[in-house]
Amino acid sequence: MEEGYQLAKLKCGINFAPALGLPPVALLSCPGSGNTWLRHLIELMTGIYTGSVYQDKVLYQGGFLGEFDEWNSGRVVAVKTHTRSKIHLQRFSSVILLIRNPYGAIASEVNRRLGGHTFQMQWTKELAESEEFSTTVVQVMNYWERIIHNVFENYMGPVLVIHYEDIKQQPEEMLKRIVNFLNMNVDQERLFCIKQELSGNFKRELTVADRKVQFEFVKGQNQNITERIMMVNKLLLDRGYPQVVPYDL
């Protein structure tokens, strides 16, 4: 049994593609949307490293070896970016737009800014009343709304919309969609890799109690989040894409 497991695990290796072998594909999201986790899953599913425009040393040291590759090297299967400008987006041949319910994205970004990539902050009354918390809520909500609008207003190439919550519920199905969008063949054996290493090194695990506290704190900032989600949903539906998934309490 152990020998079979080790043999299967060998098939989960990740490598670079040949130089200039792949078109530049943007893995675009608002900060806090689970971009790093999706990179981990795409790497497992394709066997090819992902890249980034940020060159984050912590992520590189954590195993994302494509982090310091040039975005257009052709050696990585997708490139992490949060940049929404028209000029930036037009550099890419296609875009995978990762959307997370903004309550979850805001909470995740608060944790990252105040605690780092993996540390789970203690959500206290003092945190909720801090200027840094209020500023983060406003900034992320504005960015979340604008980045979705910008893709459909400024980018004319192929776009695949993937919802973070759908990945949590149906990881294999969502990854198959991504692989097909990348014009690659689905390797059924690599589904084993997903099952064995679903979480990766940088995904926080929250309890139901954590999510409820974070939801109430974010909601208390009065940013009209429900109304803004409805506006984005209309934009998505008008273009044939699935709506934002409700926040899971």
Results as ranks from 00 to 15, higher is better:
Y241F: 15
V25E: 02
N180M: 12
V208H: 10
I48G: 00
H88E: 10
L97C: 10
L236N: 07
G47N: 06
C12A: 12
V151F: 06
L41Q: 03
E67D: 15
T50G: 11
C30D: 06
N233P: 03
L38A: 02
G220Y: 08
L27M: 09
W37R: 02
G115S: 15
D166C: 07
W37L: 02
L98Y: 04
K57L: 14
A8L: 15
A17I: 02
S33E: 05
V179A: 07
Q6L: 13
Q139F: 01
R211L: 14
A26Y: 00
V79E: 01
E3M: 14
F64L: 11
I147G: 01
L98K: 02
M121Q: 09
Y103M: 08
Q6M: 13
M1V: 10
R146Q: 12
S199F: 13
M1W: 12
L198W: 03
E227Y: 07
C12S: 10
V79R: 01
I194E: 07
D210H: 15
W71L: 05
I194D: 04
S85M: 09
K9E: 15
P171N: 05
H40Q: 05
E205G: 11
C193V: 08
T226H: 12
E145D: 11
P31C: 11
E131L: 08
E145W: 02
F192S: 06
E189Y: 07
V110I: 15
H163P: 02
N35F: 01
L206C: 03
S29F: 01
L89N: 03
L236M: 11
N72A: 08
Y60W: 12
G62D: 08
N150C: 12
G115I: 04
R113T: 04
Q61W: 09
F152V: 09
